[in-house]
Amino acid sequence: MSSTTEALPQPHRRDIAPAKLGGRGAPGHGGGGHGYATGHGEGGPASKRVIVGYGFWIFLLSDIVMFSCFFAAHAVLQTATAGGPSGRALFDPSRVAIETGCLLASSFTCGLSAVATEARSRLWTQLCLLVTGLLGFAFLTLEAKEFAGMVAAGNGPQRSAFLSSFFAVVGCHGLHVSAGLLWLGTMMAQIYVKGFRPNIVRRLLCFNLFWHALDIIWVALFTIVYLVGEGR
């Protein structure tokens, strides 16, 4: 991030053109920390929050790169149905629409929980996280039902290369959501027991980033897998 050479022990020079340095008004990523840590060594090292967010962002990007491999496999195999059913016969657009709504709404409530955390309101943070978790659980239930119905109809992952790639990419996203739900539960317990300690707040920031990234992957997923697949 910023060079740690000489500026560290000096008092923070907060009043050097603060308007120019930006970084405020952003509750999540990077903003809200020391706005004067510009990466030019002026304010000492960046705040821990900025660094933690950066590190977690790199993890998320690597996760997205992994997903892109699944997406590439699916895009290549989309027509390889081996005489089996194609997307048009399998997908139920209204179910996908409800799943999308659940995940988008959960992303929104997750963002509200971040606002509540900024305001240090335990009640609202917990409430928003609870709603986020319930919406995520509704999403997972719908997806599990869809998978169970497809497997029961003999259209499991072993039916065709198209269905293998479908179960791989959608299932991988579902696994991420399940892991996110577990993480959300532990975060709620940590807020309950420990309150808004700095490290807990940073973990909450990471959870927020994770959950929003899952929604981004779902956007790509419902577009490429479901909507484009339905047109075939």
Binding site: G23, A26, G30, G39, Y54, W57, L61, I64, L209
Partner: peptide
């Protein structure tokens, strides 16, 4: 989503995030 939920901005302390995103 990137702008409003993940708060990727053009702020100086976000430069690293934007560069990582570009690489991704």
């Amino acid at each position: 989503h990137l702008v409003f939920f993940l708060h990727i901005t053009t702020a100086p302390d976000n430069t690293n995030n934007v560069l990582a995103l570009a690489f991704g």
